[in-house]
Write a protein that binds this DNA or RNA. Structure first.
Lengths: 197, 197
DNA sequence: GGTGCAGTTCAAGCGGTCTTGAACTATATG
DNA sequence: CATATAGTTCAAGACCGCTTGAACTGCACC
């Protein structure tokens, strides 16, 4: 609703009653784009990061920031930041067509990389931190000398629990990495194997 | 992590008649409790749910709501709601000691159940929704008849991606379920196998 | 240099979630 | 029955992250 681009130049200036022409996005596209946005949000990212990727992927050809802004009804600044994130994670590519002066952005096929990347990063710093905290707690408790051994034991068990959770998380990351190969295969060989499920 | 270190001046070190003596929480306890709070928050729950569970688990004996309120410096209403959630998920138990008039709450050993429970629940409704949305998008696109087949293909690939992600998630849940048995084993047989990693 | 457009940055505002604290119910006790 | 304490509910507000929109830079072309 609030981008300002379409208020000026390119719209249908003939009809002042039609307030907004934003929705060039077809209904089916809107649904698909939002579905991806929801998934991605579920995984701890910004909803609009998923929507941008989905739009670029569905269109198949690189779009400009302005087009994305209009199609998804986002602000100029927002699009800039979203694109930067996506590019940094390697899930979109910035390209400049030969005789063209503006940047365009195209989707890489594996969105999963994005999920993996950030999950991994998070996990790294995070789990390390937790472990450090728990050892510190253990150290303090031992130094104090006044802590009943039975409680110390519980503390140690808690650390073990953390390790188990960590292991499950690692496994998950590894799994989804494996899974990518399947996904990429699907993406690579044309339309051959749809509906295989 | 904002580290709610309640370093405020509520000192009142050694005064038997002081009205309220919060912060009986030993430093090592505070660290451990917060560590669990952070993990749990990472998994999409409330930080204080994790802190309450951790406190109950570390203490080993059931505490009253009032004690929890004081130790963790939470509000009365908040504790009530947190305990209700935790009880509903089966990770704490409400007990009434024989000659006692108040409820006390004790930790079950497997916090993982909580994570699993809610993740499963979320996943169920969520993934179903995504799939429904994507088929709807496909239906609309086909009905429209004007969508280039190449884009339809992309839409289908996107659905496939969603299925793959779903499969990874399912696997993860299954994995963490398996993992629980390991964790529970640790909890059951004393302090035997620490540091096995 | 000047104009206009593409792109970036960031303070301010918005919206959604969590916590608080007061009012309320429930239960035990003299 | 009055009182006190335990426990619940929920509106108001604190809090925090995301988005916006304006000011800015950079670049191309006239």
């Amino acid at each position: 609703m609030k981008g300002y681009l379409w208020t000026g130049g390119h719209g249908s200036p003939s009809n002042p009653d039609a307030p907004v022409i934003e929705g060039r996005l077809a209904p089916w596209e809107a649904i698909a784009v939002d579905a991806v946005g929801n998934v991605i949000e579920f995984w701890g990212f910004k909803r609009n990061q998923g929507r941008v990727w989905a739009l670029l992927y569905l269109r198949g050809e690189p779009l400009t920031a302005g087009e994305i802004e209009r199609e998804l009804d986002l602000s100029k600044g927002g699009v800039s930041m979203l694109l930067r994130d996506l590019e940094r994670w390697g899930v979109i590519q910035r390209v400049r067509l030969p005789q063209d002066t503006v940047w365009r952005y195209g989707a890489e096929t594996d969105l999963v990389r994005m999920v993996r990347h950030v999950i991994e990063e998070r996990e790294a710093g995070f789990v390390a931190r937790i472990r450090a905290d728990l050892s510190e707690a253990r150290r303090l408790a031992e130094v104090a000398g006044t802590v009943p051994s039975e409680r110390l034991e519980r503390l140690e068990k808690m650390a073990t629990l953390a390790e188990h959770v960590e292991r499950a998380l690692r496994l998950f990351i590894k799994t989804s990495r494996l899974d990518v190969s399947g996904v990429l295969a699907v993406f690579r060989d044309g339309a051959s194997r749809r509906n295989e499920r």
